[in-house]
Design a protein around this nucleic acid. Structure first.
Lengths: 140, 140
DNA sequence: ATTGACCTTAGACGCCACTCTAGGGTTTAT
DNA sequence: ATAAACCCTAGAGTGGCGTCTAAGGTCAAT
């Protein structure tokens, strides 16, 4: 017995920190399924839609394109053995991309932290004063 | 005594997996400093340039815009106390963005893994068959 | 019952990050 | 010595991702 308070586009937009236009655009692109309308044609969004939008935003923030996100959202593992291998292959490929990004972002974070700690009352040598120098320090 | 074999644009492009045009574009945007030319005007890139380009690419892949990357590359902590606080503030703000991205990407990775393991000869219930379901599983 | 905030559409517009084109010079291989 | 592969510039073109505009309908408050 879920209390399904459907949201209007402006409400979802506020919740997700995107514009109404962006939501309509995502719908046009097929990222959000057209969904229900009320009696006068206003879009109504369910909790599932909210999750979908928040996934889209997260995925976009970490560098996936809308196209890739579309593929991810389309994924649906069925009992069909035939499609199963395809999906596993696709997903595993994405996982390795994600792993690379994870490493990239960790490296960037570390170098930012080195930068933040260095030179500013810190006791790091003055040579570590740009992000590239901070990055190259790490490889040691 | 570093053996500084300077690279021509095509060689750097191949090394960094970008196009020559992209490198010229980055130069025009000020992301790569104009650097040296040989006697007939060909660009020559040093190891520092290689590192710079690879940083740009990594940062781009994890969702930074060229503008943000420009700011990051410009950062240089000096002994100047006055600029120091500004830089620390800026860098710390970037670190918190990076932290959020890190969380996003970890969540996405986990859900991809759930998806990869589920349904495909695995013993997961059939309800965990889309990425959104895999994502929502995690929050438990 | 009118104002203002919200919703609809279709289509134009804008920014970012390239990518290509034209027209030229240089280097390398055969 | 000629072709293929590389380099140069300036500037036009493109695709992704929104964002805005015009012209309209709906809803809540005063």
């Amino acid at each position: 017995m879920k209390s399904q308070a459907m949201l209007k586009i402006g409400e979802l937009a506020a919740l997700a920190s995107v514009s109404r236009d962006t939501l309509r655009f995502y719908e046009k692109q097929g990222l959000i399924t057209p969904g229900k309308r009320n009696n006068v044609g206003y879009r109504l969004y369910s909790e599932t839609d909210v999750n979908r939008v928040s996934f889209i935003i997260s995925a976009k923030e970490v560098g996936f394109t809308l196209n890739e996100i579309h593929q991810l959202l389309e994924l649906e593992v069925t009992k069909d053995e035939k499609s199963c291998q395809d999906i596993k292959q696709f997903v595993d490929a994405k996982i390795s991309i994600v792993n690379e990004r994870l490493e990239d972002i960790k490296r960037i974070k570390k170098s930012l932290q080195t930068l933040s700690n260095a030179c500013c009352g810190g006791d790091e040598p003055a040579t570590q004063c740009t992000i590239l120098e901070a990055l190259s320090e790490q490889t040691n």
